[in-house]
């Protein structure tokens, strides 16, 4: 057990060193420093710049700081499940409902939606440009065995992509190596697609703020099935007593209030609106 002992000592020493260097004392520190909550959310919301636009408005109004941990939807839900965040803000409806049903979270609310777009090389070997039918487009890509990059990371976007393949009645993994799972976030997957001139399903927000587009362009958009709903959930305080319920509820209430919804609607990149608030349609 020497190794364990060493690890334990390492942790103690590290914590002690941290305290000396003047890192905020973690436990019981809320009384002295600005109150904050931790939100587990997705890379798409963070990287689109929405939070940078949204959070300062909330913090200014309430004095509550919001710390965002941006990961894939699957991981964000896991963080919430373990009680490491106060609020989960993601986009994978059925997984969210499952999360609530299992008692990990309470009171899921719809917040907003954006949409997915099918991005691909301008040369468009599968000839899908201008179509409004995402499913047909995927069938065409599979038919040509044109390179397609998948997130492959159990994120909301990945789940949406898999649903589309199901609608297309295709198993992309069966048909050779044109279908490539990168197991990475939206940005890295887009970098890969740009490097390979591949097709990829992306959320519009990340695509609009993405800079390394190479030869890629939006080819298919506007299909109802590309609709991407975001929901917000309070991590169950009955399961995790340390959840800052009051502050977390204040955040959720603000996000779905007319003021928060207006703030979401006002976020634009190059004049284009990224997210469309729809909190009135209360979910589960």
């Amino acid at each position: 057990m020497r190794l364990f002992e060493t690890t334990r000592r390492a942790v103690m020493a590290a914590a002690m060193g941290a305290a000396i260097w003047g890192f905020a004392a973690p436990a019981g520190a809320q009384t002295t420093e600005k109150p904050f909550i931790t939100v587990a959310s997705t890379t798409s919301t963070e990287q689109s710049g929405l939070f940078k636009h949204l959070l300062p408005q909330f913090t200014e109004k309430t004095g509550i700081e919001v710390r965002v941990v941006a990961v894939g939807t699957g991981q964000a839900l896991k963080i919430g499940e373990r009680g490491d965040a106060d609020v989960v803000f993601v986009h994978a409806r059925s997984a969210e409902e499952d999360f609530v049903a299992k008692g990990f979270g309470v009171g899921r609310s719809d917040v907003m939606y954006n949409d997915f777009v099918l991005v691909g090389p301008k040369s468009d070997p599968a000839g899908v440009k201008g179509s409004r039918d995402a499913v047909k487009a995927l069938q065409a890509i599979a038919g040509k065995k044109a390179p397609f990059v998948s997130r492959g990371d159990d994120s909301g976007t990945h789940k949406a992509e898999l649903d589309l393949w199901k609608l297309a009645a295709l198993d992309p993994k069966a048909g050779g190596n044109w279908y490539r799972e990168t197991g990475s976030g939206m940005g890295p997957a887009l970098n890969t697609a740009a490097g390979m001139d591949a097709y990829i399903l992306a959320d519009r927000g990340t695509w609009l703020s993405f800079k390394n587009r190479g030869d890629l362009a939006i080819l298919v958009e506007g299909d109802d099935r590309l609709f991407n709903q975001y929901g917000i959930i309070l991590v169950n305080p009955a399961r995790h007593a340390h959840v800052k319920e009051k502050e977390a509820r204040a955040f959720i209430d603000w996000v779905i209030s007319p003021e928060g919804q207006a703030a979401i609607a006002s976020y634009r990149i190059e004049g284009e609106q990224l997210f469309f608030p729809n909190a009135s349609k209360k979910g589960a």
């Binding site: 390492a10 942790v11 590290a14 914590a15 060193g17 941290a18 890192f23 905020a24 973690p26 436990a27 931790t38 710390r67 941990v69 490491d84 340390h242």
Partner: peptide
């Protein structure tokens, strides 16, 4: 101790 997602966690 609530250390996750703090600089202290990174130090550890």
């Amino acid at each position: 101790y609530g250390l996750l997602f703090t600089p202290t966690a990174m130090v550890i």
